[in-house]
Design a protein around this nucleic acid. Structure first.
Lengths: 191, 191
DNA sequence: TGTGTTCTGGAACGAGCATTCCAAAATGGA
DNA sequence: TCCATTTTGGAATGCTCGTTCCAGAACACA
């Protein structure tokens, strides 16, 4: 056996993630990451491979935690209209409080044209959110909250699109009334 | 008097814009711009000031042309529901055909956190689109296409959010059915 | 305590970056 | 034709980038 690492893997990833989130991928330098994580260059390279790999891992960590965050909002709530509303209210709060916006959306906008892995993570995230809304919508229809004639797949996609747009607003115009108007009108479109 | 410039200002800006659009701001080098525009380094600096200034000018050119594009879709059409639909159909077509997405949204996502000018351009663009939808919605209400009780400001903001989300989909998942579902459900929310 | 492996700190590397500079070429008016 | 002025091409600058390398420290196990 040999010497043990002096830093924690997930913790380091989390700190790196914050830098990428704050500055974007291209604008972040290895030096930034060394300073922010407190981990040496060589250890960073030895453990993660390089800047790109470290970024992709950060993005994966974000996706996992964010997905839990989106889908497990109000875990006491059963899937249904209330849960959809809770997710949107939560997103609205995030949008108003965090000017960094959504790391995944930022990354897709910056990199997905030339980076298939980032694109894949973006697609995956969108599909997960759509699936979550689909589940809620089915439950809502069963519970009589949504009319039988409506196309649930279209509705789920529509909600996903609005949610992503909302997250984009964090960087564009994080205004209370604006965000509330968007959320209210989006939810009203369901009934 | 003295020697005349060998290149056209707007044309050069347009070529530079394409590079920024394709690669993003940070990933674009001066060398890329020199090659793409065919204009010499010194001339580029002498005319535009530097990379950042050139980028901002490109963004402004994009905003002007794109705004004309968004608001003047189907110029024969009077403001109203049909015009809103035309704008969404046009955006859907762009989204499906151009994987670069929207330069303004990309730039906001990449830079607005640390660049007030980019942020300002983003805000301005959003407000212009909202104002455009407001005009259309008012006309639509007058024409009886939209119920009197509805809050037009909220609807305009909602439409703007959906439209921006749609443009984001160009980079995420430019899928025909997906985009059609989003557009159809968004428009259905008006009636 | 000795040994083999791994991690750590920091120097070093080559490449590429945005920007500046200058001599030469071009041009319109005197 | 000559001059004043501007553009042009390309070399040069200083800096920062991502990455590699290595000597020595730290540690688990025999």
């Amino acid at each position: 056996m040999a010497r043990a690492k002096e830093f924690d893997y997930e913790r380091t990833l989390d700190k790196a993630k914050r830098v990428f989130w704050e500055k974007g991928y291209q604008a972040t330098s290895i030096q930034d990451l060394v300073q922010a994580t407190g981990v040496n260059r060589a250890s960073l390279y030895g453990t993660f491979g390089g800047k790109r790999e470290l970024f992709l891992r950060s993005l994966q960590q974000f996706q996992c935690r964010n997905d839990q965050f989106v889908c497990n909002v109000a875990p006491g709530l059963q899937p249904g209209f209330d849960k959809i509303r809770a997710v949107f209210q939560n997103a609205a709060r995030q949008t108003l409080n965090d000017p960094r916006g959504c790391l995944l959306i930022n990354s897709v906008a910056e990199l997905s044209t030339h980076d298939g892995e980032v694109l894949g993570l973006g697609k995956g995230a969108r599909e997960q959110v759509e699936a979550f809304f689909s589940t809620c919508l089915k439950a809502a229809r069963t519970g009589g909250e949504i009319a039988r004639g409506r196309d649930l797949r279209s509705l789920a996609r529509f909600l996903t699109n609005s949610l992503f747009g909302l997250r984009l607003m964090a960087k564009m115009q994080p205004n209370r009334r604006l965000v509330d108007d968007i959320v209210a009108t989006t939810l009203a479109a369901l009934s």
